[in-house]
């Protein structure tokens, strides 16, 4: 392969996001973040534990700043993070495809 061709291949390559990978990554991060944030408040203790974080129950039914809530939060984090990651990847890839097609036609 000529160097020129290699350069073209390298420069033209547009990264794609893998929905599954993004879902797992965001899911794992989201779940862990929510679990750790809850656990941290519980371990610190004090009065009125998790006054603000507890507001999440508005969106995540059943969630509270308790050990049970931490586990539930983990599950929510995994699911919602996963959905967010997959959607991000899906949207990115669609836009990149559309733009790629437009460039090739142009």
């Amino acid at each position: 392969m000529t160097r020129q061709r290699e350069e073209i291949i390298l420069r033209r390559a547009v990264a794609r996001l893998r929905a599954a990978v993004m879902a797992v990554t965001f899911g794992a991060t989201g779940g862990a973040a929510l679990f750790l944030a809850t656990a941290w408040l519980l371990l610190r203790g004090g009065e009125n534990v998790g006054q603000h974080l507890g507001l999440l129950r508005n969106y995540l039914p059943g969630y509270s700043v308790t050990w049970g809530g931490a586990v539930l939060g983990l599950a929510y984090g995994v699911v919602l993070g996963g959905i967010a990651g997959a959607s991000l990847a899906w949207t990115y890839n669609r836009i990149a495809d559309l733009r790629g097609a437009a460039t090739t036609r142009g």
Binding site: V14, A15, L17, Y92
Partner: peptide, 11 residues
Amino acid sequence: ARYDPVALGGA
């Protein structure tokens, strides 16, 4: 590979 800035921004 390069990320498509418009696509990532859009997403």
